[in-house]
Nucleic acid binder design. Sequence first.
DNA 1: GATTGTATCATTGGATACAAAAATCCGGAG
DNA 2: CTCCGGATTTTTGTATCCAATGATACAATC
Lengths: 223, 223
Amino acid sequence: MSSSIASFGQHSSTAEEEAYRHIQQALRIGRYKPGERLIPEDIAAEIGMSRMPVREAFRRLASDGLVVLRPNRGCIVAGLTVDELYEIFEMRSVLEGLAVRLAMPRIDEDGLDDLERLLDRMERAGQSGSNDWVVRHQEFHGRICALSQRPKLIHQISALHAVIEPYMRIWFDYIEKPLSAREEHAALIAALRSGDAGHAEQVMRDHILGTAPMLAEFVTPSR
Amino acid sequence: MSSSIASFGQHSSTAEEEAYRHIQQALRIGRYKPGERLIPEDIAAEIGMSRMPVREAFRRLASDGLVVLRPNRGCIVAGLTVDELYEIFEMRSVLEGLAVRLAMPRIDEDGLDDLERLLDRMERAGQSGSNDWVVRHQEFHGRICALSQRPKLIHQISALHAVIEPYMRIWFDYIEKPLSAREEHAALIAALRSGDAGHAEQVMRDHILGTAPMLAEFVTPSR
DNA sequence: GATTGTATCATTGGATACAAAAATCCGGAG
DNA sequence: CTCCGGATTTTTGTATCCAATGATACAATC
């Protein structure tokens, strides 16, 4: 088999898993655009398998909200309306707010230092021009969520990040780097340092809700 | 074909959808028990189709967290540990908290009256002994969520309810009716009537988190 | 010239067949 | 009696095939 691209590491044993990862990655980086139809045969050929595992991957992607699957109409890339984008951010705000609150008792000095390091990496990625910033930003948020030690919560938040990632990338391509990003994330660390869980939760909520309007500007009314 | 149960309405055209509904229903009412293996062929035979649509339904159910799908190991009904049950309730608390907050500006006198009616139905179902109470309870919470007018939020909350429904039923079978249920839900309506969105959110959070410990008693350590 | 009906084509959904992996069973050795 | 190893059986994963549905283009009629 000639898996030309993305062959770093033996990710998984099943073909369905491979298809899922492949398509998700393509969606995240915006290779497939909203409204575009995903042809099972094309994708199957691309990664060297038959249509079937691809079809099954479609189901999961649909559950994640990344594609829309209409009977006998195939699979189209899900685009977000402005309303839906806000909805995602509302959900993120309360879920990640919960995550920091739960993370609070589990975090120590080392953990806080790690977060500072991640903040620096994010900053550097932002200045370098490549849009790695988006990845670093997710890494920062992901680290905090991970501290909560709640698998289902982490999974859910991660799924929401995947949905908005394409828009984050477009956003980042327009403006060099989110202006207040460094202060806001530094404020999150400070809130964690304070030891006041309720306060940290509120800071996270405000941070996320505050981001939404900036992103909303770049939602193309693709429907 | 003889679709014995739940044949109200022509739900959908595709076999996969039928399989999904069938299995989900069976899981909700506890017909399939945690840890039990779901044999694709058996279920396929049961509803008169081949393994394939059933397999695809498994993917969605796995995304919902209702079953666990391990490569080459098949599909087993997801059981919850006590920790996982608490996690679900934590997520519910913030998501439904968000839902009431968003519902607040959209609710009017008629809406509040509707909720009162649903509360009465819940009460009657609780006294009748049949475990319709669980359904009515979900109906009550679902109505509030619906008022938020947030499709993705509603969907997510609904998925969480599905996961805990079997445990709610077991719980209800032991104790006749949750003791403080009526007061708590009446308090929710009162909070909505007050017009204070933040307060209503807090009441919802407390209500849901308060329920978790009672349910946790009935989680069989099935793993 | 526009609109509607019809025929053809492409694509999806589902079933069957086949291959690969895991679980089970059975026998033998320690 | 227990533990290990191999063959068999069961079950899962994937591919191919067939039927059915939706899209499209062309033609006929208004």
